[in-house]
Design a protein around this nucleic acid. Structure first.
Lengths: 212, 212
DNA sequence: ACAACCCCTAAGCGCTTGCTCAGGTTCGGG
DNA sequence: CCCGAACCTGAGCAAGCGCTTAGGGGTTGT
């Protein structure tokens, strides 16, 4: 009924999480999980970072695991959206693959705290939640595999092992979340550019954007 | 004084860990850490897997963290050794790079439980131990960077960004520990072969091992 | 025979963990 | 002016944590 949302919800990083207090807790949890890992983070630490008492957490989330689940789900959906929207453009397979890798990597670098939680705390989820998330991840795999497959079909790419190469491409992108450091010398854009080029080489793209 | 070691110490996976009871505990810890992560693993769980009481652990190791440190140190040394011995062969830069990647990846796949602990539990180490391990990791980086640099110098490779490409190559190899599954369809040898080929493409190797 | 030694266990200590609950504050609507 | 809903806190519980301690068996050297 209330038509005015407290915060927009689509462009802001965690805008879909309401009310504001819940969002503060969730952001605090992302930071803490990324820094120390899920199991090494206490609910007191999360509440403390959000400027609340430990009990406040349980008004907005049933358990600590639900917090992780919401982070993981939203994070995966965002990453998949980023990948998908580049894959759906039109253009050669090489252009679409480069675009997808560039955006996906940039997302992992820019949002590397979120990405770290999303990519490396899967095992901390409960059975049910984990299988839900794994399904989302399979869709990322399918997106990349499709582009590579089309490139091969059109004679643009030279790839002996499509599933294997797909795996390697995604693995390369995901691992950015592990090593990327905001204080480091590379910007997310630079890393995205570098990785897009490397991936085009991996698939043996004939004419990388025209000629060469 | 006792000249006969209980176990040889060089070829067996954890042969250098003595006495046998300590090795059993350490192997149990590797399994547990790889499965659940360091912080989610209890000392009771480790001792239980080794068939001992919780107190037995503290006869052989001062703390739970010391266990992780010994695992991490030995693991890094082994991985570095694998990388180094391929890099020191003679041959073209492409041959050496391919050999190094093949062996390094094979190690991460075969020993993926150990590798997972080694690569993803660095933050759980204490300040002092972590800086010691980080030094070892920098040496791996130097090894790969040297080969790529030599390949560029000799005109074998076409690499615009040597440090960046080095980072990507190592990142690709390391991430094998995360996704590799012994029940999966690929053998460690196959993954090593695939990755060696992909890396040669990344560096724009002119003549990949002569012809083909 | 027996003391010295190593390796192990049963019991448990002090502390932190995830989580609960009774109660208090704030605020819009009747 | 008061009500009920939404939100938060202080205090604390049961369980589980890393680790310690006292002591018991087996093997060894003398």
């Amino acid at each position: 009924m209330n038509a005015a949302e407290e915060t927009t919800g689509e462009d802001t990083p965690w805008g879909e999480v309401n009310p504001e207090a819940a969002r503060r807790l969730l952001v605090a949890a992302v930071d803490a999980f990324a820094e120390r890992g899920y199991h090494a983070t206490t609910t007191r630490d999360i509440a403390g970072r959000a400027g609340m008492s430990p009990a406040a957490l349980y008004i907005h989330f049933k358990t600590k695991e639900e917090l992780l689940h919401r982070i993981s789900k939203i994070g995966h959906e965002r990453a998949l959206y980023v990948l998908d929207s580049e894959a759906d453009r039109d253009g050669t397979a090489a252009e679409r693959l480069a675009g997808a890798v560039r955006s996906f990597v940039r997302w992992h670098a820019e949002r590397h705290t979120t990405a770290r939680v999303v990519q490396y705390e899967l095992d901390a989820l409960g059975e049910e939640h984990r299988t839900e998330i794994v399904a989302l991840r399979r869709r990322s795999d399918a997106v990349v595999r499709r582009i590579i497959g089309e490139g091969v079909r059109d004679g643009e790419f030279d790839v002996p092992d499509v599933p294997g190469t797909t795996l390697a491409v995604l693995s390369l992108c995901i691992d950015v979340a592990r090593w990327f450091n905001a204080q480091g010398s590379r910007t997310p854009d630079e890393v995205g550019e570098l990785y897009a080029d490397l991936v085009l080489r991996m698939v043996g793209a004939r004419a990388a954007s025209g000629q060469k």
